[in-house]
Design a binder for these strands. Structure first.
Length: 207
DNA sequence: ATGAAGATCAGA
DNA sequence: CTGATCTTCATC
């Protein structure tokens, strides 16, 4: 008996739909590095390009956002607050992408811990966009990586677990524009979701 | 050329 | 709550 089910690479067609449809479908998928590190995606946010004032791509392509306007199924990685890398998956129309906000460590946990040596609690390893890139070793060198071909050592895979049956959309975190758009989704009950402090009001949460 | 803001995090 | 740290882009 395999300890973990076989992983299948998610095909290109998966990324074709609008970002706000792909985003909740990304929940429970697995982001896997060739070195064995992998995380289950438990929180995402959609950014909708020209439709979305909070998106980096809102005012059209720039040097930084070029990847967002390229083919679907690629990683868009940007440098945030002069400190952190954040990673998105391109999908839908040009300019659209889904920010990966949190992962639950799935494999290669030793390597993940080595990448975040000061972290004690398991749930802090990948519960935030800056944290998960650190955990998996994703940096600017991965900007433009093809998640289907795995050309730069990263793939999006599935172990067969479906996204949550009920997709509850909530407001996105950390933005100052278009705050009313419900474009954030997470796996209900997951302890590995980010921004717990900010979730205390509505909806179904931990407990 | 310049500066303000930024899809964040850890530590006090 | 605040400091860290630096790139990006709009404006001057």
């Amino acid at each position: 008996m395999p300890r973990q089910p076989a992983l299948k690479t998610v095909p290109r067609v998966f990324y074709k739909a609008d970002a706000q449809l792909v985003a909740p479908q990304l929940l429970n998928k697995i982001l896997r590095m060739d070195d064995g590190r992998a995380g289950r995606i438990v929180e995402v946010e959609a950014y909708r390009g020209a439709e979305d004032p909070a998106a980096h791509s809102f005012r059209g392509p720039t040097a930084r956002t070029a990847t967002m306007f390229g083919p679907n199924g690629h990683l868009y990685v940007y440098f945030s607050y002069g400190i952190h890398w954040c990673c998105n998956i391109t999908c839908g129309l040009p300019g659209q992408a889904v920010l990966i906000r949190a992962i639950e460590p799935y494999a290669g946990v030793e390597l993940i811990r080595a990448a975040r040596p000061s972290i004690q609690r398991e749930r802090d390893l990948g519960s935030g966009p800056g944290r998960l890139t650190q955990a998996l070793g994703i940096t600017g060198s991965h900007d433009g990586a093809d998640l289907v071909k795995g050309d730069r050592g990263v793939r999006l895979m599935s172990d067969g677990r479906e996204p949550p049956a009920v997709a509850v959309a909530t407001a996105r975190i950390g933005i100052s524009k278009a705050m009313d758009l419900p474009l954030r989704w997470y796996v209900p009950g997951s302890a590995h979701v980010s921004g717990i402090r900010r979730l205390r009001s509505p909806g179904v949460d931990l407990e």
